[in-house]
């Protein structure tokens, strides 16, 4: 089943047409990497999918339920109750965006308790387990400012996982990290991939995208220029733009 389906998505900021009709779907359990040049529309696509931006045109649906639809006059509308869709997805930001005044544990626990009204003790147990899995057991009571970038990003991954999303988006999760620290974050994402977590990862880490993805999507100038298995895109590149792009990455 398609967890996410986006059809003919268009989005512009003023005169700048960032997305020019992208159709994109993600299957349950699938790991999709989105690669492409900066300003090509990767992040905007993710922000539209996570409802941080509204699309100008195109249909978005999660688990077969429409987030956007056309009314009788063909005008694009958003569904009334968007909160139920927010339970479906999670997003890991490039710049972590942890809550600085909350401890690590509170960062992770607060949303399940206050937003989902779940039992505190139960959530705490789950969160401690998740933190342990991510190698953060000794940082439970620390504050974000006391952590390295890599640790902060792992906490933000746990924060997203604690909401038990059906699909997890990553917006360049390692771009704000020192090269030394990217490894620990990529390892965690790889671990999630092995557990068949449905994920969409916008990344500039080509080797990682190749290793971890079921499908790679190359976005260029607001369009999907090429997509396929990692072998097809990296090993047997057909599109000229993709070739150029990958060459620049020294692949």
């Amino acid at each position: 089943m398609n967890v996410l389906e986006m059809t003919n998505i268009k989005k512009s900021f003023g005169d700048n047409n960032v997305l020019k009709g992208i159709s994109f779907h993600v299957d349950s359990g699938e790991v999709v990497s989105i690669i492409g040049t900066s300003g090509g529309g990767k992040s905007t696509l993710l922000r539209c999918a996570t409802l941080l931006e509204t699309v100008d045109d195109g249909i978005i649906s999660y688990m077969g339920e429409n987030v956007t639809y056309k009314d009788g006059n063909g005008k694009l509308c958003y569904a009334k109750d968007l909160n139920r869709f927010k339970k479906v997805f999670g997003l890991v930001f490039q710049s972590f965006n942890l809550f600085p005044h909350f401890s690590v544990l509170k960062n992770v626990m607060d949303a399940p308790v206050t937003v989902l009204n779940r039992n505190k003790a139960e959530v705490k147990e789950e969160c401690l387990e998740l933190l342990e899995k991510m190698g953060l057991s000794d940082k439970v009571d620390a504050y974000p400012c006391e952590l390295s970038g890599g640790q902060q990003q792992r906490v933000s991954i746990v924060r997203a996982l604690a909401m038990k999303p059906d699909i997890l988006f990553f917006d360049e999760p390692t771009s704000a990290l020192d090269p030394e620290l990217t490894g620990e974050v990529l390892k965690v994402i790889k671990q999630l991939a092995e557990e068949k977590m449905t994920m969409v990862i916008v990344t500039h880490e080509m080797a990682f995208a190749r290793a971890v993805s079921d499908r790679v999507v190359f976005i260029d100038k607001g369009m999907i220029a090429e997509q396929g298995t990692p072998e097809e895109v990296f090993g047997n590149t057909r599109n000229e733009r993709t070739k150029q792009f990958l060459q620049n990455y020294g692949k």
């Binding site: 927010k86 999670g90 710049s95 965006n97 809550f99 949303a111 937003v115």
Partner: peptide
């Protein structure tokens, strides 16, 4: 980013 992180996690405006 703080507002966006909260929005993604489903916090209401007041929360």
């Amino acid at each position: 980013g703080q507002y966006e992180a909260a929005a993604i996690l489903g916090y209401s405006k007041v929360q």
